[in-house]
């Protein structure tokens, strides 16, 4: 809760970027994402911080690192990456642990940990509101916070969620209601260099062709996300 209070206190003089990247009307008809917003460097204590909004879903992230590491967790040839996901209310459960693992594996694929051996990089994610596509939003905010902290990375990454209806229509970046009604929900993490798949997690029934279709749609959508990243970072650095 301390983090949230701090964000409210400090947000007045920081950069806030908001762009309605994609369309406004055809939401739900196929290839469309909800509105994004991102704010970086809003907390004073962590080395890097960010919030990311996708529609009504919003997550706050703080990154600490390269920092001191406990001897028990020390890895002699690379940095120890840790991801902590805190739910909006209550204690983290099995679902959070599973998501933490997925996010950590994605981050490990792009972070150049070998440049800071015997250190720890900790990413703390605080869910502020969950209105669908939570994992994708967590991935996006983790990426922005890592960039803000200046952690060396091989590429940027983003998360895209797809939902398949009972009649087979594809919805990108679904809301909580759409996720509930969907036959299958697929989340992908893609990197910015050659848009390769870094991580995928799925729930529900889908065919092979549908998976390919979802992946192709996610790759197209990732371009919008990466363009948004660029705009948002350019705005942050426009002051200096």
């Amino acid at each position: 809760m301390e983090m949230v209070m701090e964000s409210a206190k400090l947000s007045d003089d920081k950069v806030c970027t908001e762009t309605g990247i994609v369309e406004s009307s055809s939401r739900g008809s196929g290839c469309s994402l909800r509105h994004f917003a991102c704010e970086q460097n809003l907390l004073s204590r962590p080395d890097g911080s960010a919030t990311f909004l996708q529609g009504d879903t919003s997550v706050l992230a703080g990154v600490y690192g390269p920092a001191e590491v406990k001897v028990s967790k020390e890895i002699f040839n690379k940095a120890t990456l840790e991801v902590i996901l805190r739910p909006k209310i209550g204690l983290p459960g099995v679902a959070e642990k599973s998501r933490e693992r997925l996010i950590r594996n994605t981050c490990e694929a792009v972070v150049l940990g070998a440049l800071h051996p015997r250190t720890s990089i900790t990413v703390v994610l605080q869910v502020i509101s969950d209105a669908g596509s939570l994992l994708a939003c967590c991935l996006n905010v983790a990426c922005m916070a890592l960039v803000d902290a200046g952690i060396p990375m091989r590429a940027l990454f983003c998360g895209v969620t797809c939902a398949l209806d009972s009649d087979g229509t594809l919805v990108l970046d679904p809301t909580a209601k759409q996720e509930k009604e969907a036959r299958a929900v697929l989340t992908f993490a893609l990197d910015s260099v050659d848009r390769k798949l870094l991580m995928s997690t799925t729930k529900g029934l889908y065919s092979d062709a549908e998976l390919q279709q979802c992946l192709a749609a996610a790759q197209t959508a990732s371009q919008h996300v990466f363009r948004f990243y660029r705009e948002s970072l350019q705005r942050r650095y426009s002051k200096s």
């Binding site: 910015s192 990466f226 660029r230």
Partner: peptide, 21 residues
């Protein structure tokens, strides 16, 4: 390109914002 995946000449982006990757 959207994500800047095409290689740009270092001389042309001096002073501009560059992104990881």
């Amino acid at each position: 390109s959207p994500a800047g995946c095409k290689a740009r000449a270092a001389r042309n982006v001096l002073g501009q914002v560059v992104l990881p990757g």
